[in-house]
């Protein structure tokens, strides 16, 4: 019964490029998808496991630069760079996780901020590899998905991002109801109790930092490939903020939350351009957190459920059945 709604949502997204052929709207959807990946990665750490990262953009940057460098230097296809993106981000996730998580959660939070800054400085100064502040520029004529299949135009990118987001959501959906999800959430809720029943907080946190970082790095890889320009800015506070805001406003630890939040923060700068968008970001966060501390997703689910209940009741009345008040 519930599956129907999921399938319906997927169908709408699949048909979207046919509904509107406007490249502008499609590009907004692509950006939403990329931000959603970034946010899903963060939500694994923050929403499910209670690990706060202030340097999520570091992984975004790692993905963007690995893809950028391998594409520009070696003329690799996007698909060929992805394994290296995942290996690179996993190694970084393991290193920073193992080095800090043992000492305590707050040390990871601070170290992650420093880590993102280090990545930014390396990108800025290692000019032979990164072209410094000018950034890497990818030739749009040469972009290829895999082998010699070109990756060109909004529609192709749209489907690439959509499929990746759908796979991510599917895995999160599987994970959250399983022993994996319970282990993560038990660590979030009560670390000593979790370890007293055999769940290792350090192990799971390190794994989830690597997994969350891995998803963010794929987001970064797509981002760099799609815009064709990769500058040290990708490791800046901006993208960490977007991910944190998307998760908090959308609803942490929910399936729809990161996607919803990503849509909001991808669209707002388009509606309100320039200096004011940061102000609006802050205002949205404040208003949502004050009205619904757990974000928008729980509110929408509740509204939807009560709407459906009302609808069912009306239908039953029409059929002349007694409403026994479910």
């Amino acid at each position: 019964m519930k599956k129907i709604y999921y399938l319906l949502a997927v169908l709408i997204f699949l048909l979207f490029p046919f509904v509107t052929t406007s490249p502008y709207l499609q590009s907004l959807m692509i950006l939403t998808g990329i931000f959603a990946l970034l946010a899903f990665g963060l939500d694994l750490m923050f929403g499910y496991t209670g690990v706060v990262s202030f340097g999520h953009a570091a992984f975004f940057a790692i993905g963007a630069y690995i893809t950028g460098i391998l594409t520009e230097r070696m003329e690799w296809s996007l698909a060929a760079t992805i394994p290296f993106v995942i290996i690179g981000s996993t190694i970084c996730g393991l290193l920073i996780g193992l080095a800090t998580i043992r000492i305590g959660g707050i040390y990871f939070s601070l170290a992650s901020l420093g880590f993102a800054e280090i990545i930014r400085l390396v990108a800025l100064n290692w000019s032979e590899l990164t072209h410094g502040p000018m950034g890497l520029v990818l030739n749009p004529e040469k972009l290829r998905l895999i082998g010699s299949i070109p990756l060109k135009g909004e529609m192709a990118f749209y489907y690439l991002v959509l499929i990746t987001v759908l796979i991510t959501i599917y895995f999160v959906y599987r994970m959250r109801k399983s022993w994996i999800g319970r282990a993560l959430m038990s660590i979030r809720d009560n670390e000593p109790l979790a370890s007293s029943i055999g769940i290792s907080p350090v192990l799971y946190k390190v794994i989830i930092i690597s997994a969350g970082g891995g998803i963010a790095s794929i987001a970064g890889s797509y981002y760099g490939y799609y815009y064709g320009l990769i500058t040290p800015m990708v490791s800046g506070v901006h993208y960490t903020t977007i991910a944190l805001l998307a998760v908090m406003v959308g609803g942490r630890g929910t399936l729809a939350g990161p996607l919803l939040g990503a849509a909001i923060f991808a669209l707002v700068p388009e509606l309100i351009p320039g200096e004011f968008s940061d102000l609006i970001f802050g205002a949205i966060l404040l208003i949502v957190i004050l009205l619904s501390p757990n974000g928008l997703a729980p509110v929408l689910t509740r509204t939807f459920l009560s709407f459906r209940k009302k609808f069912n009741r009306v239908k039953k009345k029409e059929e002349g059945e007694l409403d026994v008040g479910t």
Binding site: W179, R182, A183, S186, N190, L193, I197
Partner: peptide, 16 residues
């Protein structure tokens, strides 16, 4: 306890 988890999930976590 795991405060935000249901009673059911608290116990299921114990089977980790």
């Amino acid at each position: 306890l795991f405060g935000k988890l249901t009673v059911y999930d608290n116990v299921r976590a114990g089977l980790h």
